[in-house]
Design a protein around this nucleic acid. Structure first.
Ligand SMILES: [Mn+2]
Ligand SMILES: [Mn+2]
Ligand SMILES: [Mn+2]
Ligand SMILES: [Mn+2]
Lengths: 222, 222
DNA sequence: TTTTATTTTTAGACTAGACTAAAAATATTT
DNA sequence: AAATATTTTTAGTCTAGTCTAAAAATAAAA
């Protein structure tokens, strides 16, 4: 029951380890972590020693790192906080989905009793954030939704947008221009063999989406 | 128009300088600042050099420190953010007035465009925080209210509670027990010459308030 | 106007978190 | 199995922010 004190830097590393491990199963390598954090490999090694001392990661020299149960819970709580704040910023303060990440990156580190649960309640227990990512509950349980990349759909199939893989402002703003957002229905018309660009129907109009766009869009197939 | 980058530590010192200067006019002395910050005088001196380099304070060795225009604006913006977040925590998340200070102490340091203005708008442009303290507007303008310490009222006078001088949890919770909060009307019945303790009428009942309590309560005389 | 007391600054040390450059370990080729 | 390439760690340095102890400046008292 004794709560481990963590700095913002430590928390950011824990989250990064969690996210890298999510994509590539197995231990997270130092270079991958450093790349995810935008720091040098030396800095990552340094931090891994600190996190290891605090029992938040299992770290073996030259072999990579995995989160301990405590580390995993902390990372999950961080992601929960990050995503709840994003919902607040979009739903309550009226920010666009491409504007909220940097704020949430700071807000997720605010410490104190009950804040997250009060926020969660105020927001009506949202289960997904403004980018369609699931928000783990207070016990750290995740919701899994069946979803597929738009790139995997065949002509004639339809899907409802449930999320994005690329969270960059550039991508999100481009989607806005295309009229694509969470819940929007997309009908796949045809795919060009040459470059896999795809003609789709969105609401009233039609658009051509590059392969890159189709790879970064998640849909629920209808 | 070039925005000065500040750390949380620098911001906390700026706010402390502002607040000490508010109480005691004239330059803020190193020891007073260190006491307000809960750090050593050596640490305060160190920080004063940094703030002076950034042109946020005018610091003269052994003579004390005053905020520059830039420093004063920054401190005011900090106080604005702190108090707006307190309103959010009480009005929207349902925290009690004695629970929000530590959260606001962190939230005031969240950086980014438009956040404060969006929050202000969401909250309906509140002009006072949950402790009755004025919230400066986006231009840094302050509202001054005529108010007096309850200790200065004479028997027979009545006042409406507008604020507190002591912001401690202990004091605020004691006020809760007494049924005293912002907007509550207090009628002064009599004051004992011996220790200045004061019999008052609050709503239905009567209470005896110590001199300390009366000194820390602000009222608008009716 | 000295002496003494108080306040403030400096000096030196520590931690967290970053960096670069060099060394060591591991992985891949030949 | 050596040689080479890649990855990771170590060594050394830097900054922000803190501390304690000592020195210096200012204020108060004798
Ligand atoms: Mn963060
Ligand atoms: Mn998100
Ligand atoms: Mn603060
Ligand atoms: Mn307040």
């Amino acid at each position: 029951m004794n709560t481990i004190l963590t700095t913002s830097a430590e928390e950011n590393y824990l989250k990064a380890i969690f996210k890298v491990a999510e994509k590539e199963p197995g231990p997270v390598l130092t270079n991958a972590l450093a790349a995810a954090m935008g720091t040098s490999a030396a800095s990552a090694t340094d931090m891994l020693k600190r996190l290891s001392d605090k029992q938040l990661v299992a770290y073996e020299k030259y072999r990579g790192v995995t989160l301990t149960e405590a580390g995993s819970q902390l990372a999950t709580a961080l992601i929960r906080k990050h995503r709840l704040w994003e919902v607040f910023l979009v739903d309550k303060l009226g920010f666009a989905w491409d504007e909220v990440h940097d704020f949430a990156e700071q807000l997720e580190h605010v410490q104190g009793e009950h804040l997250t649960e009060r926020l969660d309640e105020f927001l009506g227990h949202p289960r997904f954030d403004p980018h369609g990512d699931p928000i783990p509950d207070a016990q750290g349980r995740w919701i899994r939704r069946p979803q597929a990349r738009l790139a995997t759909l065949a002509p004639g199939q339809r899907g409802v947008v449930t999320g994005v893989d690329d969270h960059s402002s550039a991508f999100l703003q481009y989607l806005d221009e295309l009229g694509i957002g969470l819940g929007v229905e997309i009908i796949l018309i045809e795919r060009t063999p040459y470059d896999q660009s795809t003609k789709v129907s969105i609401g009233a109009g039609e658009s051509i989406l590059s392969e890159k766009v189709c790879q970064n869009l998640f849909v629920r197939i209808m």
